[in-house]
Structures are given as structure tokens and as C-alpha cells.
Design a protein around this nucleic acid. Structure first.
Length: 599
RNA sequence: GGGGGCGUAGCUCAAUUGGUUAGAGUGCCGGCCUGUCACGCCGGAGGUUGCGGGUUCAAGUCCCGUCGCCCUCGCCA
């Protein structure tokens, strides 16, 4: 008869109060320590680690096999819980150990390509190829458990507020605007294609028209664009939409949901109300539409100061319709060396700036910087007062086209904050950014396009005046300088939608083929509605203090959008392609070379 | 599509700027050790320097190409 190897407890569970009990643990061999006459094994599962001891005084049944245990073998150990002679305060289970009576090997392991037990630095390519081992590491297991708890808390928060969780199609229709679609050929309809959704946008609006009132979904989204540390080709959104609401209703729900979620999943108390600012204010103060408000160094307009300084170059910029702005870096005078300023200048030039003008008020002569002679006496004093800066600070100037000035100073602000460690830890600075421009000029296509999406309600429903000046009722949720999510009040009247399509240069024919069903739906009584989608991977990564979302996704793709473990994408047999009516034209026939099987 | 970085032992890295037999730590294997928990001590195995070509008396090092990974600009409504 086979032995009963099944566990009575998990590896992080046993404490003093279990002493004397006969237990069985299942897990992986994390570590062995052989002291000759005494032999220790650490057994690990997702929950924790327990020390097992073979000391010769016990029955040594199974001990022979114990000596042949390798790291990462899967074992079942049975024995009695005893107090340790020397407790280990580092371990939750550190006061006890298992005096072994029987060890059973359930599966043996090859030597892993990297250590599982210790979270040593390992190159990401290797970790991704052996993701099944990487995910066995306690650090990764903790991250995925955190994500699970976080999502569960969020789901609860929505359900509690009478939101309905509804799934929308993964095989759907290609969208004309926005990111590149991932395409799926149809077998039944030769020459036709499905697209994977970039977001459930249209479906959730349809659900509002259907009267579902409050929808949410943990939705997988797909965008065939190049990757970044915070961007995967498939990612998850917490998507939601509400009927009969305006901006503040959406804001309130999200503030409540996030407060509940942070409390439940992390024990963190968030502020009652998130601050908000318009897009124009964000650009003017931070040079950026997703400002990191954890520190100051805000941009200040220097139009009033320029005449006083007598600096011709800036005066000409102003005369030409440009802007001159500055930022002050606290204590930057001493902290930022000449060498560092050279690098900052290159940084600024790479962003399109002509150069980088700077001034160190506390210094004199050449060390004070190229702007020093325009900052003497009253001029310098008033400059410092405009910037609310002190003598010890470093002042950086930028003049030129408004968008350029915002960009250059905004980026310099972020870079210096990082370099000089100006960002306080432990802050959760949520922020609403509102009133984005409705349209932006697409220079390549020579037409206007939506800066959010074409169903975003304009602030002015009549849409009169200069298209460039039209504002939208779109909003972003920003956390510590990361764009977490965006949403808008939607257009719920077909006449408004028609006006907007006209502005966008989308004719009736095009409207019908591309958005027909939504436009149809709008004619049957759509409630005013609005929503927001939050990038869940980013949010979870931020709550773990990580810059990359790769470690909160179980099976992420590489920067070339490949899966290193299962080796997707892959070449397909011709018969499979024929079935879906596909013929490939590849520039250089790619051959599958030395493919390593890890299955 | 563009720019930058990296690729050397299973892993993490070093190798005098072109010069002898490519090293260290760790892991692994073997031996010793009865209270370890980053166990300790002794010994051992382990290398197509990503791949291909070139320059040179001589290439891990320089050049060209290629593959992979990472960061980034464009792109991501």
C-alpha cells in the first residue's frame, strides 16, 4: 500500500503550540546543512519555511534517501514538532523544528539554472526562459499574492457599490484610431479578421445604453505597439462605466474604491479627497500632464522678469510669441557641479532646447553661471521672489516655443529630483487632471484627431470657435507622476457625435462602417454616462515600489513582444495557415534555429 | 523605424585597455564535522568568452555583420 504523503500543515504554519504533534509537510528542498552526525533540511512552500532535523536519535527510516536529496526536490516529511535547541528569530517558524520519522521524495529536480531560495540578481532573459522556476522564488510569489489580494479588494469595492461585473468579447472588431490592433484571421469568413480589443471602450458604452447602470471588469487589453518597462502588449485594466453621472461622481467612486482597496490589501489609509487640476494648470506648473506632486521645483513664468534682466535672447523669444520660464532646485547651487550641468545641458538639447541657461545666486564670477550678469541687484532679487527660491538654490531657465519650454523644464525637474533624491518616500499622491484639449492636430494626416477618443464629450457642446482651443471632459488619474488611468464623460447624443465626426473629418460612410452599432445605439436613448479605466499592472507595480510592471505579470513578454518560455510567436505549418486563408510574405524567411525546448 | 547599454564557468561578475595556462565569489560534486540556519574546514569538476567573419605575430579585448536581452525616442486615441 502506498504511503500517505499528504500534508497536515503548510510550511509556514507551525508554532510553539504545535509541539508534540505528529505532522506531515510537503514542499521543496530549499537548503540542506550537513553537520556530520546531524543533518538539517529547510522545506519550503508558498507559505513559508520549516526546518527539519535528522539527528540519529530518531528512527533513521528514510534517512538514507535524505542524504541524496538535491535542492528543489519535492518531498513529504513526517515527524514530531519539537522545540529547537537554538531558535532562529528570523523565521516565523524559528522556535520549532520537525524531528523526522519519514522522508518521501515525491519528485526529484534537476539542478536549477539559478538559485531559487535566495533572491540573487539574475538576468531577466534567464528568468523569463525559466519563468516556472522564477515564480517559485519567494519574492515573486509574494508579488503575485499581493496582486491577487489587491485585485480581490478592488473587485469587492466595486461589487459593494452595486457595480456589475460583465465580460466583453476578446474577438472583436478592428478599431480605426488609436494603437495598432492584434489581428486574428477568420476561418469561416475568408479574408476577414477579428481584432483583439485595445480596451472594452465601445462595449461598455453599449452596456450603459442597455441600462446596466454600473459596469466594471478586470479586462485584458491588447495593443500592438513597442514595449517599455511599464508597457506590455497585453495588459490589464480595471475598467468601469456609470450611467447618469458627471465628473465628480466618477471621481468619488474611484476615491472610495481606492481607499477601500489600499486599506484592505495594504493597510494604508489614503486621503479622503484627491486633489484635481486642469490640464492647463498641470502644464503651466509642472510642464507635464501627469505631474509628480510629491515635491516642488515648480515651473514659473518669467515674462515679467525678462525685461528687467535685459537679456536680449529671452526678450526676442517673448516678442516672437514664445515663453520664458524657470525652475529653482533647492540647495542646487552646491549640489549640482559644473560637470553635472554640462550633462543637463546635453539632456536639454536632446529634448530640443537651444541650450541651458543657469544661475547660482550664492556663487560669484564664472561659477555663478552664464545668467549671473542678468541677475544682478533688483533683477536677481525679483527673480528669486518669482521663483520663491533661496540663495543656495540653482535656477534653470528655458525660453522658446511653449510646448518646448514645458517639456524641457518638466523633464529637468523630474531628472534633478531623481538625481538629488528630492522625492519623499511613502507618499501616495493621487491627482485628477481635467479639461484636456479635445483635439490635437495630426501634422502627418493634416487633420484634427481626438486626443482621448472620439466619444469624449466636449466641454462646449456646440463646439464653436477655434478647434485648437476646445476643451474636453476627459480626465486622467495620476499617482506619483505615473498616468494610472484615463476616462471621460461620453457623448450620449447623436447630434453632438455627428458634429464631432464632422470636425474630425469622418464622413457618414466611414462612421457607419467603423462605429455603426454605437451610433445606432445612441439613437435609442442613451443615458448620460462616463467612466474610467485604470492600468492595473502599473498600479500594482507602484504599490510594490517597482518601476517595471514585468514582475507583477506572471508571464510577461520581452521588449520584442516575445514569450521567452513558450517561444511565442512561432512559425505555423502551411496547412494551418491555409485553413484561415493566410499566405505569408516574409522578407527573409525566418528559420527556427536552435530552439531550446523547456516544456 | 532611430539612439544607447549589455552578452566571459550553472549563476553574479573580474581580466592591466591587443600579450603567458581566462580568474573570484557563489552554486554543484566528494571528504571531515552533533545545533546549523549565508553552517564551517579541506579537495574537485566546471569555459565554443552569444554566433559568423575580418585585422594582427598575437583578439575576451579592435573592426564588420548577425542573434538575444535591457533602457529609451518615435509609437501607445
Amino acid at each position: 500500500m502506498a504511503v500517505d504523503w499528504r500534508r497536515t500543515h503548510r510550511c509556514g504554519e507551525l508554532r510553539e503550540e504545535h509541539v508534540g504533534q505528529e505532522v506531515t509537510l510537503n514542499g521543496w528542498v530549499a537548503k540542506r546543512r550537513n553537520l556530520g552526525g546531524i543533518y538539517f533540511i529547510d522545506v519550503r512552500d508558498i507559505q513559508g519555511l520549516t526546518q527539519v532535523i535528522l539527528d540519529g536519535s530518531e528512527a533513521w527510516e528514510g534517512a538514507a534517501s535524505a542524504e541524496h536529496l538535491s535542492p528543489e526536490d519535492v518531498i513529504s516529511v513526517s515527524g514530531k514538532v519539537v522545540m529547537r535547541e537554538q531558535p532562529n528569530p528570523e523565521l516565523p517558524t524559528g522556535k520549532i523544528e520537525i524531528a523526522v520519522q519519514r522522508i518521501h521524495k515525491l519528485a526529484s529536480s534537476e539542478l536549477p539554472p539559478f538559485e531559487i531560495q535566495r533572491d540573487l540578481d539574475t538576468k531577466i532573459d534567464l528568468r523569463l526562459r525559466y519563468r516556472f522556476l522564477d515564480l517559485r522564488r519567494p519574492d515573486m510569489q509574494e508579488k503575485l499574492m499581493h496582486r491577487s489580494r489587491f485585485v480581490a479588494a478592488m473587485r469587492n469595492a466595486f461589487l459593494k457599490r452595486e457595480f456589475i461585473e460583465i465580460e466583453t468579447p476578446i474577438l472583436t472588431k478592428a478599431t480605426p484610431e488609436g494603437a495598432r490592433d492584434y489581428l486574428v484571421p477568420s476561418r469561416v469568413h475568408p479574408g476577414k479578421f477579428y481584432a483583439l480589443p485595445q480596451s472594452p471602450q465601445i462595449f461598455k458604452q453599449i452596456l450603459m445604453v442597455s441600462g446596466m447602470d454600473r459596469y466594471f471588469q478586470v479586462a485584458r487589453c491588447f495593443r500592438d505597439e513597442d514595449l517599455r518597462a511599464d508597457r506590455q502588449p497585453e495588459f490589464t485594466q480595471l475598467d468601469m462605466e456609470m450611467a447618469f453621472v458627471e465628473e465628480e461622481d466618477v471621481f468619488m467612486v474611484w476615491e472610495e474604491v481606492l481607499r477601500d482597496t489600499f486599506k484592505d490589501a495594504m493597510g494604508v489609509d489614503l486621503q479622503e479627497k484627491f486633489p484635481s487640476m486642469t490640464w492647463a494648470e498641470a502644464m503651466e506648473r509642472f510642464g507635464c500632464d501627469k505631474p509628480d506632486t510629491r515635491f516642488g521645483c515648480e515651473l514659473r513664468c518669467l515674462s515679467d522678469w525678462v525685461p528687467q534682466s535685459g537679456f536680449e535672447v529671452f526678450a526676442k523669444v517673448l516678442a516672437g510669441g514664445g515663453r520664458v520660464m524657470g525652475i529653482a532646485i533647492p540647495k542646487g547651487g552646491a549640489k549640482v557641479s559644473r560637470g553635472a550641468l554640462k550633462k543637463l545641458e546635453k539632456f536639454a538639447k536632446d529634448l530640443g532646447a537651444g541650450g541651458l541657461a543657469w544661475w547660482k545666486p550664492a556663487e560669484s564670477g564664472g561659477a555663478a553661471g552664464p545668467m549671473a550678469r542678468f541677475c544682478q541687484e533688483d533683477s536677481g532679487a525679483s527673480l528669486l521672489s518669482i521663483l520663491e527660491a533661496g540663495e543656495e538654490d540653482l535656477v534653470l531657465f528655458c525660453g522658446g516655443d511653449e510646448a518646448l519650454v514645458w517639456r524641457v523644464l518638466g523633464e529637468l525637474r523630474l531628472r534633478l529630483a531623481k538625481d538629488l533624491d528630492l522625492i519623499p518616500k511613502g507618499l501616495w499622491n493621487f491627482l485628477w487632471v481635467t479639461a484636456f484639449p479635445l483635439l490635437e492636430w495630426d501634422a502627418e494626416m493634416e487633420r484634427w484627431s481626438s486626443s482621448h477618443h472620439p466619444f469624449t464629450a466636449p466641454d462646449d457642446w456646440e463646439m464653436t470657435g477655434d478647434p485648437a482651443k476646445l476643451l474636453s471632459r476627459a480626465y486622467d488619474l495620476v499617482l506619483n507622476g505615473w498616468e494610472l488611468g484615463s476616462g471621460s464623460i461620453r457623448i450620449h447624443r447623436s447630434d453632438t457625435q455627428a458634429k464631432l465626426f464632422k470636425l474630425l473629418g469622418i464622413g457618414p460612410e466611414e462612421q457607419r462602417t467603423k462605429f455603426g452599432f454605437l451610433l445606432d445605439a445612441l439613437t435609442y436613448g442613451a443615458p448620460p454616462h462616463a467612466g474610467l479605466a485604470v492600468g492595473l499592472d502599473r498600479l500594482v507595480a507602484l504599490t510594490l515600489g517597482m518601476d517595471s510592471i514585468r514582475d507583477v505579470v506572471a508571464f510577461p513578454k520581452t521588449t520584442t513582444a516575445a514569450d521567452a518560455m513558450c517561444e511565442a510567436p512561432s512559425v505555423l505549418e502551411a496547412t494551418l495557415l491555409r485553413e484561415v486563408h493566410i499566405r505569408c510574405e516574409v522578407p527573409e524567411p525566418t528559420t527556427e534555429t536552435d530552439s531550446k525546448s523547456v516544456s
